[in-house]
């Protein structure tokens, strides 16, 4: 049984839809007869082709100007809901996604289910699955409210697969008012340099934890290995909180979920809050000098050893091959 209309709040970076958005569209196709997207940004025409390819028949688009995107999204969607009555609206558990779903929930007076990792539909019942206690317990929660149901889904919960349709039709949305909330104005954007693939899109992720010993070891051990494997570098919260690396690199419950083909954990103990963000990886390799470290309980290949001895040798071997 499918829902008749599922919407996806679409996000993009520089005219390219986020992978999280394409994942939600793929899921929406599976559970909804009609799939449509709402996009708030300057370049709706640029994103419409890709959104269509992943299943959106229409893109309702609003230009936020300098206003905070999620604020405009909530006001625009609230207006659209009245006219079009979707059954379910999916958001990514992202910065703007959270702003949008939160404000919308108040406007519509609907509850939100958040941190979703699965969505199930049975008749009119829509259930969102999450993992709590560091991923050790799976909890299903079913909406008992009026529609539309509002759910925020963690990126990487679904695979993104194109459905082969043409560009989505762009429908401009106007005539809504976000009130004083619209005062939140973006004055300036700072984009930090990033080399190589994004953490959440990389085939290989090499992460460092407190066991690397000092901030100056991150570059020669973690980043160097990641670069040689054409992967991305990540981190445990311990070294993010210590200020060794920026928050954007954090993997885990309060950071990113990653599902690469290979995840390499260097000097990471394997706290449940870390493992929940990486245990969906296809292959896990861990290097830790403590043979009892919990990370070994999920590692396909575990090396009980010192990262300062093992990692430079891997790097040397890889360099010798290229």
């Amino acid at each position: 049984m499918a829902l008749s209309k599922v919407w996806v709040y679409a996000e993009a970076e520089g005219g390219t839809p986020l992978s999280a958005t394409l994942e939600l569209l793929t899921k929406a196709r599976e559970i909804g007869d009609t799939v449509e997207a709402v996009f708030v940004g300057a370049d709706a025409d640029a994103v419409a082709a890709k959104l269509g390819e992943y299943g959106a028949a229409k893109v309702y688009a609003a230009d936020p100007g300098q206003t905070l995107t999620g604020v405009v999204a909530a006001a625009a969607i609230a207006k659209l809901v009245e006219e079009h009555q979707p059954d379910l609206i999916l958001f990514a558990q992202s910065y703007d996604g959270r702003d949008a779903i939160a404000r919308l929930s108040v406007k519509l007076d609907r509850p939100v289910l958040t941190n979703g990792m699965s969505v199930g539909v049975e008749g009119d019942n829509v259930t969102v699955g999450t993992a709590i206690f560091g991923g050790n317990l799976l909890v299903d929660t079913t909406f008992r409210s009026e529609k539309p149901y509002l759910a925020a889904i963690r990126p990487k919960s679904f695979a993104a697969e194109p459905g082969g349709a043409g560009a989505a039709e762009v429908v401009k949305v106007e005539g809504f008012d976000a009130g004083r909330a619209a005062e939140a104005t973006v004055r300036d954007r700072h984009v930090e340099e990033r080399e190589g693939p994004k953490l959440e899109d990389a085939t290989v992720v090499v992460s460092g934890g407190r066991g690397i010993g000092a901030p100056e070891n991150y570059e020669p051990l973690v980043e160097e290995l990641a670069k040689l494997l054409k992967g991305a570098s990540g981190a445990s919260r311990a070294i993010v909180d210590a200020g060794w690396v920026p928050y954007a690199k954090q993997v885990g419950q309060t950071g990113k979920t990653v599902k690469p083909r290979v995840y390499i954990a260097l000097g990471i103990s394997g706290a449940t809050q870390h493992m929940v963000g990486m245990k969906g990886s296809d292959n896990i390799i861990a290097v830790n000098k403590d043979g009892e470290a919990p990370i070994f309980s999920i590692a396909d290949l575990g090396i009980v050893g010192d990262v300062h001895k093992v990692v430079p040798k891997i790097i040397e071997a890889l360099k010798a091959r290229s």
Partner: peptide, 21 residues
């Protein structure tokens, strides 16, 4: 207006090989 309809332990991931350096 939401109901927790199921709670179950997550399937555990199996450990692989562990070797001393």
């Amino acid at each position: 207006r939401q109901e927790i309809t199921k709670v179950e332990p997550a399937p555990a991931r199996q450990a692989g090989e562990k070797i001393e350096d």
